[in-house]
Structure formats: structure tokens, C-alpha cells
Computed example of a mutant assay.
Amino acid sequence: MSKNILIIDGHPDADRGRYVHALADAYAAGASDSGHKIERLELATIDIPFLRSRAEWTDGTPPPDIAAAQQAIRRAEHLVILYPLWLGDVPALLKAFLEQVARPGFALAEGTMPRPLLTGRSARLVVTMGMPAFFYRFYYAAHSVKSFERNILKLVGIDPVEHTLIGNVEGDTETRKEWLDRLFNLGTAGA
């Protein structure tokens, strides 16, 4: 069964030599080969201003690139968000993007208790890091990934959320190729 899949490449560096871009390409190729409908956002290539006040977030008009991203999210049944772990968290550009798109009325209905507006979607987080993934998962308890899942994605109704943690990204060529194959296979499955 084909899905509408949105791939959000959250690497802030547009240099195509970045491994996150290759992983996004591999996932997209697998998904496309299996008949899934693919849309892509490469955050390094779009205008994402930082929000500086609550008034901007609640009452401001999203810039054109953000409004287009919101529409792509609205069309998606499954989101694949790829990013490098920087200083133990998402890069600032990805955080700025999330703040921009998750505005009241799009991601949450305002009220005493915010109501999620993006239900019916699933997601996969693909996170690259220099340290071994098992060390990040067990020593640091994958805190950034858990926060992203709980405090952003599930808050707005995106559930279930799966994780793919890829450590030692500066490692050997064979391991990097194996991960590209795994992402291709995840894309094929639409997972």
C-alpha cells in the first residue's frame, strides 16, 4: 500500500557531501521504487527565520517557505526527519523550522488544553552522530530523540514515531554503505 511520505532533511549544511543527505536520498530512492509518493524538504535550502517572540509565533504570518512546508506536512501520511546530532540535540536550524511550522492553528488548536491537529500521521527520526549509537542510547538515554518525539511530534498528534540512530558516522566506508542500504529498505517499506 503506497503512502504519501514527506522527507525532511534537517542538515543545516547544503553541501551534498554530508552523510544525512545521502541517507535521505537512499530512503527516497527506496520509497520511490516502491510506488510511494515522495515530497522532500531540505532545510539548508529554504528560508527559515528565527522566531523572537510569542506574538510572532501566535499572530505572525508564516513566511512562504514555511507555509509551503506546512502544506507538505498536511499532505503527508508519514514523515521521515533526518538530522545530525549537534551538541547533543537537533541543529538550531531544525529547531527554528519546527517552531515556525508548529504554529497555533496548524499543529495545535488553542484552548485551555491544546488539541493536536496533525493526527493520523506516523514518523521516523533518523539521527546521525559521531559517538557510538549504543553509547548515546544507554549513557545519554537518547534524551534529544525522546524529547523530539514526546514534546513535539506526539504533542501535535504524530504517532507512532520510530527511531534510527546511526553512530560513528565518520566510520568505515562499508558501514556507511550498509546504512544507506538499510535506509533504502526502510523507504521501500514506507517505514
Score class of each variant (00 low, 15 high):
140 Y>T: 09
31 A>I: 01
69 A>S: 15
92 A>H: 09
31 A>W: 00
126 V>Q: 05
82 L>C: 08
99 E>M: 05
12 P>T: 05
153 L>Y: 05
173 T>G: 10
49 P>H: 09
153 L>N: 07
115 R>K: 14
79 L>F: 08
123 A>I: 07
77 E>R: 01
138 F>S: 06
11 H>F: 05
57 W>A: 00
31 A>L: 01
16 R>P: 03
190 G>N: 10
99 E>W: 07
8 I>W: 03
52 R>V: 10
105 G>E: 08
5 I>A: 02
56 E>F: 00
10 G>L: 05
124 R>N: 04
61 T>C: 02
175 T>P: 00
49 P>V: 13
152 I>A: 04
95 K>W: 02
52 R>Q: 15
6 L>A: 03
91 P>S: 00
68 A>N: 14
102 A>D: 02
24 A>G: 13
176 R>H: 12
26 A>M: 02
63 P>A: 04
82 L>Q: 06
140 Y>K: 13
37 K>T: 12
154 K>R: 15
78 H>R: 12
86 W>K: 01
139 Y>F: 11
61 T>R: 04
168 N>F: 01
190 G>D: 11
75 R>L: 04
54 R>K: 06
139 Y>H: 04
139 Y>T: 03
109 A>V: 09
123 A>H: 06
131 M>T: 06
115 R>A: 15
130 G>S: 07
54 R>M: 11
112 T>V: 13
145 V>H: 01
95 K>P: 03
185 N>E: 13
143 H>W: 09
135 F>R: 01
128 T>M: 10
190 G>S: 15
85 L>M: 15
149 E>F: 00
124 R>A: 02
169 V>F: 07
112 T>F: 05
68 A>M: 07
115 R>M: 13
95 K>L: 08
27 Y>C: 01
18 R>T: 13
182 R>C: 01
94 L>F: 06
148 F>T: 14
66 I>T: 05
92 A>R: 03
182 R>N: 10
180 L>N: 03
62 P>A: 15
65 D>Y: 05
33 D>G: 07
139 Y>I: 08
119 T>V: 11
76 A>S: 13
15 D>C: 01
20 V>S: 13
121 R>G: 09
69 A>V: 12
25 D>L: 01
9 D>K: 05
156 V>L: 02
80 V>L: 09
68 A>V: 15
159 D>P: 02
14 A>H: 03
137 R>I: 03
182 R>T: 03
162 E>K: 09
104 P>R: 11
137 R>V: 04
73 I>H: 08
173 T>V: 12
96 A>H: 02
75 R>W: 02
151 N>C: 12
44 A>I: 05
32 S>H: 07
4 N>V: 01
33 D>N: 14
